[in-house]
Structures are given as C-alpha cells and as structure tokens.
Design a protein around this nucleic acid. Structure first.
Lengths: 125, 125
DNA sequence: TTAATATATTCCTATTAAGGAATATGTCAA
DNA sequence: TTGACATATTCCTTAATAGGAATATATTAA
C-alpha cells in the first residue's frame, strides 16, 4: 500500500531522478519540443512523454501546442513549495558554519595567547 | 519497475508525506524517543520506526541509544542537497515578483501622466 | 528469572509506478 | 488521400513500498 502521496504532489514528482534530469534540461527557461528532450537525455520517447505528463500534473512544467510539436517549458513556481519547505531548515547549517568559524577563531586566539604569554602551556583536561 | 531511486536518496525520503510529518516533529532540534513521536503523530509504532529507519538511511536523522530509548534527532544537513537543488530556481519567482512590481509601477505612472497632462486620454490599441 | 516497557523486524497484501513494445492520435506536406 | 513525422496512450511485466499484525530483540525493574 505505497501511499507515496499523489503523483501530482511536487515532492513526489521531483523524487524521480529522471524527472530531475528533465527539469535540468528545461532549466534554461527556454521551451523545448519533446524530441529535443529525448535527444538530450538518453531515453525513449514514451518514457519522456510520461515523465513530462507527471511534471505537468505536478505543475512543474507547462505545455503549448505549436504545429506538430508540443513545446514544454519549466514552470519554476511549481517548485516553490519545496523551496519554502526546505528553507525552514536553512538556519541549521548556517549556524553550523558559524559554530565552525567561531571554533576556528577561538583556536587561533588560544594559539596567540600561548605564544605570547605562556612558554609552558598546560594541557586542559 | 518503480525506479524511484534508492530509498536512501533524500528526495525519495522526503517524498513521503508521513516522513515530512516526522521531520516536522523533529524540527525543534530537540531529541525525541520513538514513543513520543508515535504520540505526536497518530500512527502505529512499527510504521513510525520504519519511517525513522528510512530517514536515518537518507541521513536526515541521527539516533543514539539512551537507556531503553532510542533518541532521534533531526540532522538538517541531510536536507541540504534538496535546498541546493531547488535554490537554483529561486530566481524565477523572484523575477516574477519584480515583473509584477514593475507592471504596477508602470500603471501608476501612466495614471499620473494622464491626470497631469492629458485631460482627454486616447485608448491605446 | 520474570515481567514490563521500548523499539525493530518480519511477513503479508494491496497499490503504485517505471520502462519497453506496440499502437493510437494528431499534424503537416505532397 | 497517403506518407512522414511528433507525441501520447495502452498493455504488460517487474519491482518497490506503505501499513497492519504478529513477533523478535533489548533494556530496565522487581
């Protein structure tokens, strides 16, 4: 009973590596006909069409007919829920970096103090 | 042949709504024993344990034994690949906002010009 | 040791999904 | 119309997984 949410859920849509590849192809912002995407990825046309369909249902790409082609274009706004969700955790690794910086500075300071001031430093703990 | 990448892939891990719920519970940064997570979500213990296992394999949570409990804690760094991936598309909706702003300003300007300067404005197109 | 508690694992079933092959649909050109 | 091309859809098979129930493992207390 794989309740992996609906396939129209953005998180589900981008879980598929090939779909992230499709998105990467479209990430220039230009529009692409299916067969150009097929060429750029090494993948059969039906598979590409299916992934494009999934991405469209998830609101990550848009499509318009132009002649016998269907032009697909990235709809980046569709990725915003992911961005908003993950942004909440940004502070964790930002703080981590700060911690590291602070530790480095503290160490440098300790070194200076030892050089300056205590020719015979004792080990701590 | 659902090749939804490996379950250890972060994108796959967060595709599951219940796992995002687990992450939400852990998002305070504190550590939690399994049964507290079970209480907070309305979900059977084995299911919670399984999701925690998946999240651990994906590097999104860490676990340590403390007495008869296993304390789980969010490892937010594990979400960084998602953040980095989606950050690339940030500019799209940022630009979109700029467009809207610009359009609003242009309209305001047009209104001013009409009031100032042309008591009998002609329709454009 | 035994009991109680906390957590993980195994087995089962239903459901979903990916990709290949074949085929259908749609559009243009001659 | 016929043919060529572009794309979508259907059918099939295989694999993966969520959750439930039952059970196993581990730890503490009595």
């Amino acid at each position: 009973m794989p309740r992996t949410a609906h396939p129209s859920d953005v998180f589900t849509a981008i879980a598929e590596p090939r779909r992230r590849e499709v998105i990467a192809v479209l990430s220039s912002g230009r529009e692409y006909p299916v067969n150009e995407i097929v060429l750029r990825m090494k993948m059969a046309q039906p598979a590409v069409s299916k992934h494009l369909g999934a991405l469209r249902k998830a609101g990550v790409v848009t499509v318009i007919k132009r002649g016998q082609h269907r032009m697909y274009r990235l709809n980046a706004e569709g990725l915003k829920p992911v961005h908003d969700w993950v942004k909440v955790f940004e502070r964790y690794w930002t703080h981590q970096v700060d911690e590291i910086k602070q530790r480095a500075e503290r160490k440098a300071l300790e070194r200076l103090i030892r050089l300056d001031d205590s020719p015979n430093p004792k080990k701590e703990k």
